[in-house]
Nucleic acid binder design. Structure first.
Length: 201
DNA sequence: GACACGATGGGCT
DNA sequence: GCCCATCGTGTCT
């Protein structure tokens, strides 16, 4: 159900492996105002100094957390209005993180609708900014430990169909590494999301 | 200090 | 599909 957690060893692995294995898992935020949960359907891997698109391409005050212990949240603010949530991977000292891009909402739908201010279920947590808004995640959650904290990831990987791979979204040309892992369907974001008939609000 | 630029999303065409 | 708001972060002066 939603009470189990993946162990730290799960995150303490190569970033691409963690990213692929996160698709289908359950993301949970047990906040004071209520619990919300959803099934991860889209993630992207961001590596260290070898990945020009990664914040960890250069080690700075902000990106330093990507070099730290695995299993922590890395939440940052961008475009003046959006938050993006990542999971830190690799061993302590090696940079890596997985961006959480979309989930299929499963629990706490009312709270998510209230936070998002929309009745459209399909767009509750489709895209990294919407996901953070629906789950109530902001910079206050930066650094939280998924292994021991209000935000957790657990459950078996439940995937409808194959885990597909594509280039990451929204990056500069020439950096199109196939490091986006997703389940095709109405809940994933991006041009290859592939909506299905089952999109009722 | 100043400035350029996003791992985006919402609204309009 | 195109446009652009909006501000924290990084980099340069």
């Amino acid at each position: 159900m939603t009470t189990d957690r993946l162990p730290r060893a799960f995150f303490e692995r190569p970033t691409l492996d963690v990213a692929r294995d996160l698709v289908g898992r359950t993301l949970v935020h047990d906040a004071p105002e209520g619990l919300v949960a959803g099934r991860l359907v889209e993630v992207e891997a961001y590596l260290g100094p070898a990945d020009p698109s990664s914040h960890a391409f250069r080690r700075t005050a902000r990106s330093g957390i990507m070099y730290g212990p695995a299993g922590r949240l890395y939440v940052y603010f961008t475009y003046g209005m959006h938050h993006c949530a990542n999971v830190v991977t690799e061993t302590d000292g090696v940079a890596g993180a997985v961006l959480l891009r979309a989930v299929e909402p499963t629990e706490g739908l009312d709270l998510m609708h209230a936070r998002r201010g929309t009745d459209y279920r399909r767009l509750l947590a489709r895209g990294p900014g919407r996901l953070c808004q629906a789950f109530g995640l902001d910079r206050a959650h930066n650094g939280l430990d998924l292994v021991d904290g209000p935000v957790r990831i657990g459950g078996p990987a439940v995937v409808e169909g194959p885990v597909e791979v594509s280039a990451r979204i929204g990056l500069r040309p020439g950096q199109e590494q196939p490091w986006r892992f997703f389940e095709r369907g109405p809940w994933a974001s991006g041009p290859t999301a592939g909506a299905s008939p089952e999109t009722a609000p």
